[in-house]
Amino acid sequence: MTAADNTVRRVTRRRANTRARLLDAAFTVFAAKGFGRVSIEEVCEAAGFSRGAFYSNFATLDELFFALYQERADLIAEQVAEALDADGSGLDVPASVDRVTEVLLLDVDWLLVKTDFLVHAARDPEVARTLLDHRARLRDAIAERLARAGVRDVGTAAHAVVAAYDGVTVQLLLDRDVTAARTWLAQLLTALLTDGGGAPERVV
């Protein structure tokens, strides 16, 4: 490997580290103050960087948020994929639902940030379209895994899974009861993935 190659690798690592620190700092500040109440300067101060470092990685706070969103969407898709990993004998709904609800991301700070941004996006059609695109990619990833697990009508099922997750997280924001949220989510997913059998006990 040449000296130039080593230099490129060091620059790439440094840039990746800067980006990661900005994302971590932004998440902390967004969760504490609310997405619409945070400036680029505050994110930079929390991360220990200049505005130049910010603009070398992100054009706007919206773009930074979408990077955060994609990280968590990828995590959720991965969690669902692992939980629905078929063993060749078809989907074992109770076992799969138990695995999903045991590990699925239910973080109150993230839900606060996501909800703030949802309100922001609802007032800006361009941002709303971008957020819809990101949500569609998450649904597609879930649908792909459901198809591999043998679920019929995966498009509808993926929409229903995301809607169930959204509904549970709204309740979680209000009562902060993660254990109850996981229990209720399990009831909803079991009903959805077994053709609606077994009505959930909890109602928002």
Rank of each mutant, 00 (worst) to 15 (best):
V103F: 13
G36E: 00
V29H: 02
R10P: 09
L193W: 13
Y69R: 04
A67R: 03
A158R: 09
T169V: 15
S96N: 11
Q171Y: 09
E144P: 04
L131A: 03
A158C: 13
A77R: 08
T156C: 13
L64M: 04
L91V: 14
E41Q: 05
F66E: 02
D62V: 01
T130I: 04
D175G: 12
F58G: 00
A67P: 00
A77M: 11
I76D: 12
F35G: 00
A4P: 05
R152S: 10
V43H: 08
T194L: 04
H159F: 07
V119G: 15
E82M: 10
R72C: 05
E45G: 06
R15G: 02
Q171H: 11
A31C: 10
A77C: 15
N17A: 03
D5H: 14
L174P: 15
T7D: 07
T18P: 06
T179N: 14
W184M: 10
A186W: 03
P125V: 09
V204T: 11
A95F: 15
F58T: 00
V93N: 12
R182A: 05
H159V: 06
D62K: 00
L131K: 02
R202S: 05
A157V: 12
V80T: 08
E102C: 13
E42R: 10
E71Q: 06
L138I: 04
L112Q: 07
H120F: 01
A136H: 05
P200S: 02
A121I: 00
A143R: 07
D116K: 01
L189Q: 06
T7W: 11
D153I: 12
P200G: 04
L185N: 05
A4R: 05
T115S: 07
R13W: 08
A20H: 10
R123G: 13
D24M: 13
A163R: 12
E82Y: 06
L105H: 09
R14N: 13
F54K: 01
G52D: 01
F49P: 14
D140H: 14
D175P: 06
V119M: 03
L104F: 12
D24A: 07
S96Y: 08
N17P: 02
V108C: 12
R139A: 07
A149K: 12
R135Y: 03
A73N: 10
I40Y: 01
F30N: 08
A147L: 11
E82V: 08
V11T: 11
L132E: 14
